[in-house]
């Protein structure tokens, strides 16, 4: 039933853009106004109307004027609540949308910043299947609404339509407005699950192996990525957490020079996935790395900003 309705709605929007007010992407900020706010009664509103009609018929039939007066009062209050619902949305501004980072397949955190001079209660925001409710207080003037955006593939992803709606104050009417911000978010490539370390640095491995056999200098807490064979099982058994034998730090690690050309034999997307994994490992180990891509070269560096820059570059690859 719901699917059929949705299909009908999509068809109508495709065929009758003027009638359904299908919104083309528009630049931010967007202020809601009367030409783009729609109101229909909710299911509860329809039921309540039927109830009021029954009460009206009863009051008229028994010529009970007191009941008639209160029925009229309740009905008028319901009608007034429609205007309140409209006013809750009217004049609300979506100032901008801040996008976080996410790799393909994970939800990308979005932040919608709404501003208003009036207090607005119980406004809800729908994006796909996700929904959030927010309160905008006049004293603060703005609110940031977090909303996850599901992602599928790396690269630029256009935002779909979001719906701002409310049933404030009585739940009898639903006022809503579609927003289609002309904004895209960059989705990072998904790193591959596992694979070899960056080529040409196999000596790292060998150097580590040289250390094996030496007495560990200390025990430290397990960190993600520690090889299982370094876990001090006996010592860990007496502790809550896993302990790892911390070997003497090998001599200063060399920078990784991650290079698109080294992975020549591989398929395009798998190359990107591997580079993404290496970047992730470099970030986890706090290791400096540089990145060579066909149309972009990034000098060696480290830290979250560097990582984000490299991942952005990977995401933007054709």
């Amino acid at each position: 039933m719901r699917d059929a309705l949705r299909r009908a709605q999509e068809y109508a929007e495709r065929r009758l853009p003027a009638l359904t007010r299908y919104r083309r992407p528009e630049p931010l900020p967007v202020a809601l106004h009367r030409r783009r706010i729609y109101i229909v009664p909710t299911r509860f509103g329809l039921g309540f109307t039927v109830l009021l009609l029954v009460m009206l018929a009863g009051a008229l039939n028994y010529s009970n004027n007191a009941a008639l007066l209160l029925t009229c009062l309740l009905g008028a209050a319901g009608a007034a609540s429609m205007l309140v619902a409209f006013r809750t949305l009217d004049g609300l501004r979506l100032e901008d949308i801040r996008a976080g980072h996410a790799v393909a397949g994970e939800a990308l955190p979005l932040g919608f910043r709404f501003t208003s001079r009036r207090t607005r209660c119980a406004v809800r925001l729908d994006l796909g299947d996700a929904s959030a409710a927010f309160l905008l207080e006049a004293a603060r003037g703005e609110v940031m609404v977090a909303m996850p955006l599901p992602t599928e593939a790396r690269g630029w992803q256009a935002l779909s339509r979001v719906r701002v709606w409310t049933t404030w104050p009585l739940g009898l009417f639903r006022a809503w407005s579609w927003l289609h911000p002309a904004q895209s978010v960059l989705v990072w490539p998904r790193p591959e699950a596992g694979g070899p370390p960056p080529g040409g640095h196999a000596d790292d491995e060998r150097r580590q192996r040289l250390h094996r056999g030496e007495d560990p200098a200390a025990l430290r807490d397990y960190r993600r990525g520690d090889p299982l064979r370094h876990v001090a099982w006996k010592a860990s058994a007496r502790h809550h957490d896993l302990l790892v034998k911390d070997f003497e730090e090998p001599e200063a690690r060399r920078d990784w020079q991650l290079d698109w050309r080294q992975l020549g034999r591989m398929e395009h997307e798998r190359r990107i996935a591997r580079l993404a994994r290496w970047l992730g490992e470099a970030q986890a180990q706090d290791r400096r790395c540089s990145l060579w891509l066909p149309d972009e070269r990034i000098e060696a560096g480290s830290g979250p900003a560097h990582y984000a820059r490299c991942m952005d570059a990977l995401a933007k690859l054709p």
Binding site: L60, N61, C72, L73, A76, A79, A80
Partner: peptide, 20 residues
């Protein structure tokens, strides 16, 4: 407050709803 705002319309409706 809502009922108060609704009162004028309610009174008009009360006056004009045709009685049986």
């Amino acid at each position: 407050a809502l009922l108060g705002a609704a009162l004028p319309l309610a009174l008009l409706a009360f006056l004009f709803v045709p009685r049986l």
